[in-house]
Simulated scan of single mutants.
Amino acid sequence: MLKLKPSISIVIPCYKAEHYIACAIDSALNQDKVDVEVIVVEDGVFDNTKDKIPCLPNVKHIQLEKNMGASGARNIGLAHASSGYVVFLDADDYFQGDLLIGLYQALLESQASLALGRCLSLHEETGKRVMFVPPYKEGELDVLKRWLEGCWGPGTCSILWKVDEIKRIGGWNEDFVFNDDGELVIRALLNGCKVAQSFSGYGVYRKHSSPSVSKRKGFDTFENQKCLEFYVMDRINSDRKFSDLILSLNEFRRINAQNAYKCGYDKIGKDFEKRWEYYGGKLPLSRVGKVPKNIYLILFLLFGMRDSEKIISLLRLYLTMIKTKFFNRK
C-alpha cells in the first residue's frame, strides 16, 4: 500500500518579481517528499510576473488589482490554502534540500503549531552568507526572548504553520509594514502556540536593495514596534508565565531607541529611551551593528544614546569617504 505524502500549501506574495518568481516556484515544486500546492499572490500588476508562472494544476495565480502590501497578500493566499499546513515563501527566496518534509515531521512529532528550520541569509551585493540554525529544543519563552532581543530568525521561508493555528490567532497583521514576521511569531507564542525545530534542508532568504515583496519604510516602522512593545507588555501584565520577558522587552526598547536615533527620528528615539530607563535600563546589554560593544559603551557613557548614534554615523560617513578616495587613487 502506497503511503500518502503530506500536503503543504506554499503562499508566495510577489511584487515586481519577474526576475525571481520562477526560481521560487521551482524550488517549491522540487520538494518531492511532500505534495505542494503553490499559491502565487501578485500584489498589484507592475511587470511580467504572470508570464513566468507555469500553468500547472497545483499552481494557483491570484492577481490583485490594488497593491495591498506583503501581509495583505499573504492573508489572501492563506484564505485560498486547501491543505492543513502552510509556508510563506517570498518571491525572491527559495527552498533547498528536504526542508518541508523535515519541518512537517518536526511539527507532527512535537504536536506543535509551528516549526522553525534553518535559514541562509544571502546578501546579493556583498556575497555574504549567514546561516541561522534554530537552537536545539528551544522553548517558547526562549524564542520570545531571542526575538525581542534582536536575534531574529528564521525567515518566513523556513517556518511551517498549522493553518488552523495561524487562522486562530488572526493571520498576518496588515497594519505592520516592518517586522511583520516577528510580530506574527511573537503573537503566536504569546497566545498558546507551541514551537518545534527541524534541521533538514534550509530556506534561502535573499537580501538586496530591490525587494520583490512590497514594503514601506519610515515613520510607521517605529510606530509598529511601539504597538508590538505595548502588546507584549499587556500579555506580561495579564499572564504571570510571561514575567520572564520583562528584561528582554526592555532590551527591545533600547534597540528601537538606538535605531530611531540612527534614522534621525529623535523624538521617537527619546520616547523609547525614556521607557527603557523607566523599566530599569542603565547600560546597553548588547550592540546591534558592527561597532564593538566596548567602544559603544564608552561613547554611551560620555555622550548618551542619541549623540552616540550621531557620532557613529559621522564616523562611518568619514571612513566611507576615505575608502572611496583611496580606491579612486588606485
Rank of each mutant, 00 (worst) to 15 (best):
A24K: 02
S286W: 00
A188K: 01
F176C: 07
M1G: 14
S210I: 14
K293D: 04
P154G: 04
P154C: 05
S214Q: 08
V86P: 04
V86T: 09
F300V: 01
C227Y: 09
R287T: 15
L56P: 08
K60P: 01
V41K: 00
W172G: 01
I236C: 10
A106L: 06
F46E: 04
A91S: 15
L114C: 14
K226Y: 15
S200C: 15
A91M: 05
V130E: 13
D175G: 11
L148I: 10
V288N: 05
N191R: 07
R316E: 15
I255G: 03
F222D: 09
A91G: 03
V38D: 04
Q31E: 08
P54M: 08
K282L: 10
R216E: 15
V40F: 00
D43C: 02
K16D: 01
D98T: 09
D43M: 03
R253H: 09
L103C: 08
L160S: 02
F95K: 02
M321L: 13
R146H: 05
W152K: 13
Y296D: 03
F176D: 03
N67M: 11
E65I: 02
N48M: 02
I268G: 03
G203E: 05
K145Y: 07
K270A: 12
Q63W: 00
R287F: 03
L302M: 03
D271L: 14
G203I: 09
K310L: 13
I186K: 02
R129C: 11
G139D: 15
R240T: 13
I322W: 06
V232C: 05
D51W: 00
G69R: 03
E277W: 01
Q96R: 12
G171M: 09
I311Y: 00
P6G: 00
C227K: 15
S82V: 13
Q111T: 13
F326M: 07
L2W: 02
K137V: 06
Q225S: 09
G155A: 15
E124V: 13
F272P: 12
C263V: 11
V87K: 01
N294E: 08
P292S: 02
V86C: 09
E183Y: 12
S248W: 07
I268C: 02
V11K: 00
A28P: 06
G182L: 12
V204T: 09
S113H: 07
G304I: 04
K66Q: 14
G192F: 06
S308H: 00
L160D: 09
I39T: 07
E183D: 13
E149T: 12
V163W: 00
Q96T: 14
G139Y: 04
N173C: 10
S113F: 06
P134Y: 02
F252I: 11
N75R: 05
D271P: 01
N173A: 11
S243D: 10
A112F: 05
K282H: 08
D43Q: 04
Y261Q: 03
D244P: 10
Y15G: 00
C157R: 06
G155H: 04
S7Q: 13
I246E: 14
G269W: 10
L89A: 06
A106R: 07
A79S: 15
Q63T: 15
L247Q: 10
Q96G: 02
V34S: 05
V36I: 08
S83P: 06
K194S: 11
E309G: 04
Y278D: 11
L283F: 00
E138N: 07
I236S: 06
E251T: 14
K310Q: 10
V291R: 02
R206K: 11
A260L: 08
S209F: 08
V195E: 08
T221S: 10
K262T: 11
C227R: 15
